[in-house]
Design a protein around this nucleic acid. Structure first.
Length: 111
DNA sequence: CGACTGACACTAT
DNA sequence: TATAGTGCCAGTC
């Protein structure tokens, strides 16, 4: 629109960059990513960015879960449990839509 | 320009 | 321990 020039997804790009750095078989949380971006209170925006990330194939959004380790965004994926399948495919166990050993598999973007 | 929405997180009850 | 309410930032209507 008129004001704000969107800065070319500057915020989103940051999120994608971090998500892309998530090692296989590891997971992280929205808040952690937001924090790494310096926007600790913008955890919701991270999820919003993921929405746009659907257009990119380099952004493993399935490795991003909420602070609880719960696959809150699985509903946004294609199938019903595609997100879970992807995680399990990488060695991440998911039970009841929640990542098992989330704390152990947790990957901090700051690193 | 104003209001609502949203893949979260935290605090209070 | 579980549920509810509030705050936050950005995008869309």
């Amino acid at each position: 629109m008129s004001n704000s020039k969107s800065n070319n997804e500057n915020f989103f790009e940051r999120v994608y960059e971090i998500v892309r750095q998530i090692p296989e078989g590891k997971v992280t949380s929205y808040g952690a990513i937001a924090k790494a971006l310096g926007a600790t209170r913008s955890a919701r925006m991270v999820g919003w960015a993921m929405n746009a990330s659907h257009n990119l194939s380099d952004v493993p959004a399935h490795r991003v879960v909420n602070r609880n380790g719960m696959l809150t965004g699985k509903h946004h994926f294609e199938g019903t449990n595609l997100m879970q399948q992807l995680l399990e495919n990488e060695g991440v166990k998911v039970v009841d839509n929640k990542v098992v050993n989330f704390k152990i598999l947790f990957w901090e973007p700051s690193k």
